[in-house]
Nucleic acid binder design. Structure first.
Lengths: 210, 210
DNA sequence: AATAATTAATTAAACGTTTGTTTAATTCAA
DNA sequence: TTGAATTAAACAAACGTTTAATTAATTATT
């Protein structure tokens, strides 16, 4: 029954996301998933291999959605940016727990090969964005911006909001019980802000008085 | 000899930053600081209290530098933003290891009160930025942007660059041995990008052809 | 179709480490 | 001589992992 393996992975994402890799014990995990402690090692070999399988599985499932947008010749560069932002916000908001797990791993940078795997699996997304911005600059549709740091701004804005709920609530001036990531209005707000930020930054002439 | 206490804190920052809180054992720390294992508990009471003291000490040392800028009436709003960016980039680049430690803690969100302390100690900075942007909007110098998310973009851009060296190197297309955070050219580049991004986003009319 | 043989899944218990912390003795300084 | 600083050793608890036994499921044989 591979359902059980999937079930363990699901619970593992949940626990790793809230307690970190070191902070999550196999006993905790086994209890939460309602399986015997030995089952984790039986299925995955080790705690670390479980983590790797978890990362690879999730990363593979959402790859190359962005490249389609990048290669869609019916769209202008700024329209592509809009679509990329929408896709990215949507993806990260829905998979936010998993996203938190892999960013924890990326930041702590302990298990070296795993960190590299994560960086590699995330990089295609950044590359698609890079292609789009570079194309826009070549077409004279965009200003001659710092491409790499512009991408850092897109990703960084979302991560800043998403990675720490505690800080996000401070920033938004909301109570502890509010969960912004489940509020569609907030998702739209992030979308609108990012799109506007990028239009301001990328397009050659912005005459948005208001 | 309080020098020894300081020394332990210094080493602790180093180790926590590279191996995380859970990943750093008191024995590792004691060995690296060349003191007996018992000394950490003797001085700090516990591993967690050491961490708290570490955070409080660092946070207190750099507080309210931004409020001065916010209250400087001789500067326009966009000039204040420029100064804030400069100060923030400088501060985070030089204290990047410590910055990484507290962000790990913020993201993992395990020791609840500590996470709150960190969020609280970081928040005044965000608040200063908020004041500046809101004032600029009131003065009609700035567009009517989403203030909170604009701050998220400033902080997020820097964090995106700084928190994971592995991903940063991928983004910059550099070799593994390059350390961007020690390259003054790169620091200037981040400054320039952020300032331009914010001018584009905040100022009412941007006629920056090229 | 029923039974035997074989493989897979599951379990409780134990393994050896490592963890943070404490103790009790000793050294050092005031 | 008193109190702080420092040490080596030990503590219990938690860790990831393994073992060996048992149950369930699958396959092969009659």
């Amino acid at each position: 029954m591979t359902d059980k393996k999937e079930h363990i992975i699901d619970i593992a994402i949940e626990l790793f996301a809230t307690k970190g890799f070191e902070g999550t014990s196999i006993r905790d995990l086994a209890a939460a998933a309602d399986v015997n402690v030995a089952m984790v090692n039986y299925y995955f070999g080790s705690k670390e291999k479980l983590f790797e399988e978890l990362v690879q599985r999730k990363a593979a499932s959402s790859r190359n959605l962005l490249t389609e947008i990048a290669n869609d010749s019916s769209l202008t560069a700024i329209e592509k940016i809009d679509k990329v932002i929408e896709l990215y916000v949507e993806k990260i908001f829905t998979n936010r727990k998993f996203h938190r797990v892999i960013h924890q791993e990326l930041i702590t940078n302990q298990r070296e090969t795993l960190t590299r795997n994560i960086a590699d699996s995330m990089f295609p997304n950044a590359l698609s964005m890079k292609t789009i911005v570079e194309e826009g600059i070549r077409n004279k549709e965009f200003k001659n911006v710092d491409v790499q740091l512009t991408i850092a701004s897109i990703l960084g804005t979302i991560n800043q909001i998403l990675l720490s709920k505690t800080f996000c609530l401070r920033l938004l001036d909301k109570q502890e019980d509010y969960v912004p990531y489940e509020d569609p209005k907030f998702k739209k707000r992030v979308n609108d802000h990012l799109k506007e930020l990028m239009r301001d930054h990328l397009l050659k002439i912005t005459n948005n008085p208001q």
